[in-house]
Amino acid sequence: MVQHSSGVRPVIYAEGLVKRFGQVTALSGVSLAADPGTVLGLLGPNGAGKTTAVRILTTLLIPDAGHAEVAGFDVVRHPQEVRERIGLAGQQASVDEYLTGRDNLVMVGRLYHLPSRQARSRADELLARFGLEDAAGRLVKTYSGGMRRRLDLAASLVAAPPVLLLDEPTTGLDPRSRTDMWTVIEGLVRDGTTLLLTTQYLEEADRLADHIAVVDHGRVVAAGSPDTLKKSIGGERIDVAVPDPKDMAVVRAAIARAVGREPDLDLELNRLTVPVEAGVRDLTAVVRELDQAGIVVEDIGLRRPTLDEVFMTLTGHEGPGSGQTEEVS
């Protein structure tokens, strides 16, 4: 029986999904679960298998092995029942370029078997909600990338599905549109939608997901809440910003003496980072050592690890969003 530790039956559930494309193994045994009304984030680098997992869960692809249920129905045996309960916004905005925004939404409504009038009023409602009223009568061909994405998301919401699967919903959006999209997604979750979201942005998973599955090479390499994941790779971090590169070696030695571990150097930011177990006590020790060495640092701080670092530790390579994510200090 499919049950989560909490005893609630997950709305999205997958066990041991395997999918091969010729020589390539896209998924080699992926298991996932999302409780009702929560957000499950699938985080992984290019080619990890995120899209493949989404395509299986949305009945677009049949797995070679494993089992998956969405909204209580088996995706392979009862795809039609699943389709009636899901909304999908794929990795590319799959809207029709040669129809207007409104036409697109009305068409999708009709294909969900809404009566014609209801399909039209739902379309207008969604156009308003996504700030597309002014462009509603224009061909989608003339829309910007961000407008297309919003329209695509609107299309996945036409039938107000209880389960939503979004494959990289904010890729290619500017920071402003991305935050807007987050707000929309948070609103949907508040209204009780269960959501699976894949993302290239660690920051995004951190903000939106209740539960994150880190996928790499077709496997879930780590899973848990953002907090658990961060804890799982050790406690906090101390960052030391060194204004003068000449001091780097001295600072490095001071930190190593204080916490008994070599710090990592970020050349671009002239910053040394070291994981610590004892938090403030370690921080004080570092400050004392630096003081004794007579070094003035630009900035020093204690912080929780970022998902970027979680990612690096778990997969052995840099997170896809590194460089774009902001430090949470």
């Binding site: 949305t58 039609q80 389709r83 009636e84 899901i86 799959s94 809207v95 029709d96 294909l111 969900y112």
Partner: peptide, 13 residues
């Protein structure tokens, strides 16, 4: 190519 077929196939049509 544009994913429209995928969208159709994910609908209960």
């Amino acid at each position: 190519q544009r994913g429209v077929i995928d969208r159709f196939r994910s609908l209960p049509m």
